[in-house]
Design a protein around this nucleic acid. Sequence first.
DNA 1: ACGTCTATATATAACCA
DNA 2: TTGGTTATATATAGACG
Lengths: 219, 219
Amino acid sequence: MANKKPSIGRQKIKIEKIPKKNHLQVTFSKRRAGLFKKASELCTLCGVEIAITVFSPANKAFSFGHPDVDSVMERFLNQNPPLNSAANRFFEAHRNANIHDLNVQLTQVLSQLEGEKMHGEALDQVRKASQSQCWWESPVEELGLQELKQVRDALEELKKEVMIQRNKILVDYSANSLPFFTVNGIGPVGNFEAKPETSSPSTITNVNNFGCGHGNGML
Amino acid sequence: MANKKPSIGRQKIKIEKIPKKNHLQVTFSKRRAGLFKKASELCTLCGVEIAITVFSPANKAFSFGHPDVDSVMERFLNQNPPLNSAANRFFEAHRNANIHDLNVQLTQVLSQLEGEKMHGEALDQVRKASQSQCWWESPVEELGLQELKQVRDALEELKKEVMIQRNKILVDYSANSLPFFTVNGIGPVGNFEAKPETSSPSTITNVNNFGCGHGNGML
DNA sequence: ACGTCTATATATAACCA
DNA sequence: TTGGTTATATATAGACG
């Protein structure tokens, strides 16, 4: 009569890649949630900082972080330089440079040149170059002031970020000796995020476009 | 006789900061191990990439990553611009710029200006500025070509890194469709690391030096 | 600090709505 | 894809060496 088997319950599984795709997806979601919960508990119980990043089977990025992913990652990366990160090398190369002043100088140089050397033809070339999506593909002779101004603007941005970064580091150090955070005790601690990865062909296109379609760098 | 109670077994605990320090340390170690194990299983079961970073109560960094922490973090940071990361903003701002060509152009501009506008006084100022450790602190009028050349060199470096990065991403994509890893079935998948945090005064000194000793940026 | 033990709290595999 | 149920596999709190 009561031989109904409403559930066989949890079964032991071997830790190896799950073959069935939909099954895998379910397992991923549940275990990801479990992992983040564990991380959250670890944060609360021990008052530590943590960051987790996972790329789903569909290449979607999920992350958990306390206080937030970025700050923990930055902290980690700063003390653990990957040695082949553009950011770090650039950062290093510029630790002795005051970007803003360089920008000022560059602007001066440019305006001087603009007044002294800009005939009519150069201007046309600049305009033409600007219209092209891959204007930097044009011969060097056609490059102009616009591009240099882009560099200047970017440097200006970088300068600001450098200052923010510096201040952050200082704050970090002074905070290290203080109690970390006030946990409210109810609900999980930390931030969850999920960002779609543009895994459509467009990303590959973007990636390719980044280098302007050239197969290999000049390294 | 056998009324011995060898263990009270696992007790329910409230998820809130553990007050007793030594107890907290034990819990941290155990739960960290558990977390990394879960992460490892998730990797194997679902064939996904993952990175975890934890700063212990003693500010020691522990991490787990598959295939490795850095590659996963870079992948995450590239698609998830922190919005306040110097590297990413700069990266973004320049996705349309060919650094090398800009450098060439900058060099041309500089040499032109050098020939046309460089009187004797300017050169002296440049030399004086170069000798100063904090040359960028001097008035703008004293800044010169040296500094701009530093920028150019740094940009050249960045360019190289950009190419490396680009190639890496491409490799990543082509690898995505292949079986991720060959699990030997014995032992967890992934890399564990623990790095000491340089909390000595020398680091603080470095940090302070970064901004050339000035208390606050001009942001 | 780490390994072991035991009893119990949790996580979760399979199924279903 | 998400959420609930059930039976079981695991994780782990507390105590000890």
